[in-house]
């Protein structure tokens, strides 16, 4: 099978891989690179479990081809904490019990981080609409929303 060669940057590291032309970025991350933090909940752009950043834009990695990452920068959940220091969102999610099973959590965290970088002072409604692409079946979103609002307040104060 013909494979394409891709050079890219993932969580700040230069990475090269070969992938099939129809292979998604999500499959490359999970199956080729062992970065299984991004999850596949649907494979069709409906659940957000596979959320990653591509050149600073929030995307569903199941809708991006592996080949499209050429010369771009990808950020995944594995790059969110700084060494042993959790990102404030990660700590707040734990504190607020904003996860039950945790399968949606990587995607929700990536999406929320993107939100707070764009809008450090979102209203509850803005958070709810921003996260409307990230399905969570366990929590009813209540504690997720509270964790996000609380982190935003903290980060503004810091």
């Amino acid at each position: 099978m013909h494979q394409v060669h891709v050079s890219t940057k993932i969580n700040g590291d230069e990475i090269e891989y070969l992938c099939e032309t129809d292979e998604t970025l999500l499959d490359v991350l999970r199956d080729k690179l062992g970065l299984t933090g991004a999850k596949e909940g649907c494979g069709s752009g409906d659940c957000g479990a596979c959320s990653v950043m591509l050149d600073g834009r929030l995307v569903c990695s199941c809708l991006v081809l592996g080949a499209e990452a050429q010369d771009r920068e990808v950020e995944t959940i594995e790059g969110m904490a700084d060494g042993e220091n959790l990102h404030p969102l990660q700590s707040k999610f734990l504190e607020h019990a904003a996860l039950q099973c945790g399968i949606c959590t990587p995607g929700v965290l990536i999406a929320t981080k993107a939100l707070l970088e764009k809008n450090p002072d979102p209203t509850e409604t803005e958070v709810r609409y921003w996260l409307a692409g990230n399905l969570c079946r366990c929590t009813g979103y209540d504690k997720i929303i509270r964790a996000v609002m609380d982190t935003a307040a903290d980060m503004r104060g810091a």
């Binding site: 299984t36 969110m80 996860l99 945790g102 990587p106």
Partner: peptide, 14 residues
Amino acid sequence: GVDKVTGRARFGAD
């Protein structure tokens, strides 16, 4: 908890 917010937790497909 920490495993689940850092993407380290291993689920069925991982």
